[in-house]
Amino acid sequence: MSPLLILEQVLNGLQLGVMLFLMAAGLTLVLGIMNLVNLAHGSLYMVGAFVAAMVARWSGSFVVGLLVALPVTALVGVVVERVALRRLYERDHLDQVLATFGLILFFNEAATMIWGPRAVYLDGPSWLSGAVEIIPGAPYPAYRLAIIAVGLAVAVLLYLLVTRTRLGMLIRAGASNREMVSALGVDIKRLYTLVFGLGAMLAALGGVMAGPIYAVEVGMGEHILIQTFVVVVIGGIGSVRGALVGAVLVGLVDTLGRAFLPGMLTLFLGPATAASLSASLASMAIYILMAAVLVWRPSGLFPAHG
């Protein structure tokens, strides 16, 4: 186990973390500010990826696909918020879970009707197709470096939005005490629609960025949704900073667990037992992390609600 391999795996973990952050940022805003458990967040991720794949096929350009997918998915999010979710804010979380689970089925069926049941093709731009040898002997895909860059840029932009703008102030205020905010005359309905649209756009960005490395298929959002919820719970509901830290933690723990548990267990057990045991342990690692964080800090690392 060379130090270079460890470094490469840390980079892999960071990249997975950034990918998760794109999803978690939107989810944590919706959950924290609107107090809405939105299981359909993964569906918006899927819609973003499918729209980008379709537009990229027509136009021959990944970037055009990305630029079209973001506003289209935001619009889909806004429509969903107005038509369906608006009725759920006053209901309890179980109703929200049921209704947004229904939305997952709706979106999966709609995607099957529009794009078919088979996975579709989406490749990154050709200028990112190569590999960069930032670690000697281990060429790292340029596209994955681009994901890290985009994710960190989004983190900075969101930070500026939340801390430096009027909208951000309202978002923070809404997360702490929504009754007070609406009592002060803020149009909370419009704020919710805006936040949901922003969350949808972030989910779409995650989906489009994932397209060239993952399979773009019906149901793709459900795989990543569970990990995203783990990130949000670890980071603290409603906190963008928490989402970033939580995502990187989850990405690192998941990647390093998968990378090094088999080798470590083989030292103690036979290779066959170690292979199957480490696979089980590695898939539990992020949940163990979540449990540990919750024991230490019951409302996550950076709780938004005071």
Partner: peptide
Amino acid sequence: QTDYAAEIAA
């Protein structure tokens, strides 16, 4: 699983 970066590096 969707991400295989760790497995590919190993």
